[in-house]
Design a protein around this nucleic acid. Structure first.
Length: 287
DNA sequence: GGGGGTTCCTGTACGC
DNA sequence: TGCGTACAGGAACCCC
């Protein structure tokens, strides 16, 4: 399940092969992979072929490759199970391959950029870039908040936003318009580390608790990034198809019924927003 | 406009 | 063995 660390691993893996590559051909095998591109497959293809990728950027869980013309970019959201894979141009089709982009790189030669996605929640699009402070970002990313590893992330703005929210803190952490890049796994991990119950009202958190939570979010994201991301069910892999190692370091997520690494109390798994929350009922008391 | 619930989707695990 | 069902969850969407 790609969250910030996983998407960043993919972005960093794509950059050396994609940047300066010329797009020679694009094949769309499944239109559901273009739900973010309203104009359809033929428009998508025509906006890419002949263009050159000039960069590899990310905000939260969105990544994009700017193009050399018309202030546009190829954007990608991996959803739950999307993969961006670098393959030889004649490589056999991946199991859930939806789109293949053939490129030619000045040093690496011909490559295929393959978008595969089992659950089809992910999609690609070509989108217009618009100014956002000192940088250009795709229109579809304008409403996404900066992520906590972004040097321009506004800590005090985050504290103010939490103070105004009458929702459970976990729900707020998953709101990409408040803080981006955090999904179910890292929300559970950061709340465990900060000893905060996931159903605590955001507005009820003290300033020190909020600062502690933000610090723990940064720690857990950075640590996961250093370990190549979290791979649970082979749905998340890097551009070479390799899994990350952070699943071995999880303290709460996916550990329902197992002892809390801090106090030994059994971790509780609880339904929350059509998914699960994992927390320690002793370390993370509800107030 | 904030809040909260629903929906989209497919492979896997599990119970009967 | 085979079938049915629950589950995984990001984000858009809808209704209150």
């Amino acid at each position: 399940m790609p969250e910030l660390p996983e998407v960043e691993v993919v972005r960093a893996g794509l950059a050396p092969a994609a940047v300066d590559s010329i797009i020679t051909a694009v094949s769309v095998f499944d239109e559901r992979a273009l739900t973010r591109h309203a104009a359809g497959p033929s428009d998508f293809v025509s906006r890419l072929e002949g263009r050159t990728f000039t960069g590899a950027e990310r905000r939260g869980k969105f990544l994009w490759l700017p193009l050399d013309a018309e202030e546009s970019a190829l954007i990608a959201h991996l959803g739950m199970s999307g993969q961006m894979l670098l393959r030889a141009p004649d490589a056999a089709a991946e199991r859930h391959e939806r789109i293949r982009i053939h490129v030619e790189h000045p040093q690496h030669g011909e490559l295929a950029l393959v978008f595969a996605d089992q659950r089809t929640f992910g999609s690609l699009a070509v989108d217009r870039l618009v100014p956002d402070g000192p940088t250009m970002i795709p229109m579809q990313v304008v409403h996404i908040a900066r992520d906590p590893l972004d040097p321009l992330f506004d800590d005090s703005g985050f504290l103010r936003a939490l103070r105004k929210r009458g929702s459970a803190i976990k729900r707020v952490l998953l709101d990409q318009q408040v803080i981006s890049g955090v999904g179910n796994i890292y929300a559970d991990e950061a709340l465990w580390a900060a000893r905060i119950h996931p159903e605590t009202f955001a507005s009820a958190l003290s300033t020190p608790a909020t600062r502690r939570l933000l610090a723990e979010i940064r720690v857990v994201l950075a640590k996961a990034l250093a370990e190549g991301g979290t791979s649970f069910d082979s749905q998340y892999v890097n551009v070479n198809g390799q899994a990350g190692y952070f699943a071995h370091s999880l303290n709460a997520y996916g550990r329902g019924g197992q002892p809390c690494p801090r106090c030994g109390t059994l971790i509780r798994r609880q339904a929350f927003m059509n998914r699960s929350s994992h927390y320690c009922p002793r370390c993370q008391r509800r107030r």
